[in-house]
């Protein structure tokens, strides 16, 4: 390809002469926006395990779709959505769902194994589902991603506040009349669709880097929900763009760079958080007695 220059705009222009790179940037950006927003609720609702599990469930769906000669994204959608509904219905409270999620996950991964054993010559397909293939996204893939993202964002626009309330203070939200089970199911389905489109970019094994890491960074940067969503989206978009950019010059998988960039950002935020906490502790130690008193348990 071409050599790197410090004129980034020119670099991007050169990359965008190739349709597969345009597709990668388009689909990547759309997915980053969705993952950044959904990820905030994942962190807030402590649904990281559900996210992880749904990614794996998606693998079985994609494997089944390949076996039956269908586009993997349909298999992904079918399996993640039904898995999400199963998990949501079995475990009513978000905080105590681990066992239900694990049970559904084990069963659906078992199906994946069956599909895998029934299909020969599977290795490359499986590899791209596991680790993503952002440089192989078709124009159909971009369009599908776009419309799925629009659907997710429209639903989020309607449920944003009740979902935030229900995630933040379950019992009060229930008493205030919010339909908790329905909200939980809606969120799980949104998560399932978001994961299904994100798998094309990052793969089921690396889904965390897009769905959780950016939001985990955001909640350590700001305490305001809306700002946190914006930060989360920005981190996700930056990770994808930077990952694609670097992979243009270094011929290693883009997924590796995307995951690594997100991870480095996370480490940086954790490290700076630890430093500022220590500074705050030092400044609090002396003059302000009401803040320095021992906190009650819990």
């Amino acid at each position: 390809m071409t050599n790197f220059s410090w004129n980034l705009v020119t670099d991007l222009r050169i990359m965008w002469q190739y349709p597969f790179m345009v597709n990668a940037f388009e689909a990547g950006t759309i997915i980053a926006v969705v993952a950044g927003i959904i990820g905030y609720f994942v962190v807030l609702r402590r649904s990281a395990f559900a996210t992880h599990a749904l990614g794996h469930v998606g693998f079985s769906g994609a494997a089944g779709a390949v076996l039956f000669g269908v586009n993997p994204v349909y298999g992904l959608l079918l399996f993640t959505t039904s898995g999400a509904l199963g998990m949501g219905l079995l475990g009513k409270r978000a905080s105590t769902r681990d066992v239900e999620i694990g049970t559904v996950l084990a069963f659906m991964l078992g199906l994946g194994l069956l599909f895998l054993s029934l299909y020969n010559g599977y290795a490359t397909e499986a590899y791209s589902i596991l680790f993503g293939e952002i440089l192989g996204i078709s124009t159909f893939g971009v369009a599908f991603t776009f419309w799925a993202a629009i659907a997710i964002l429209l639903v989020l626009l309607v449920v944003y506040r009740p979902l935030l309330f229900a995630s933040l203070d379950e019992d009060v939200a229930e008493a205030r009349g919010l339909p908790m089970l329905a909200l939980g199911l809606v969120f799980m389905v949104l998560l399932a669709v978001a994961i299904s489109i994100a798998v094309q970019v990052i793969g089921v094994l690396l889904i965390f880097a897009l769905m959780v890491t950016p939001a985990a960074i955001a909640v350590r940067v700001t305490r305001r929900p809306l700002t946190a969503v914006l930060v989360s989206v920005s981190v996700a978009v930056f990770s994808i763009w930077a990952g694609l950019f670097v992979s243009w010059y270094e011929q290693y998988p883009p997924s590796f760079f995307i995951v690594s960039i997100a991870f480095v950002l996370y480490l940086a935020v954790r490290a700076s958080g630890a430093v500022s906490a220590r500074l705050l502790e030092r400044s609090n130690r002396t003059p302000r007695p009401e803040l320095a008193t021992v906190h009650e348990s819990n």
Binding site: R161, F165, L168, L178
Partner: peptide, 18 residues
Amino acid sequence: HIECESLVRMGVSGTHWG
């Protein structure tokens, strides 16, 4: 990691759809 005001505001708008 959420500011207190955001929680209190849920008491006003948390049940508002859209």
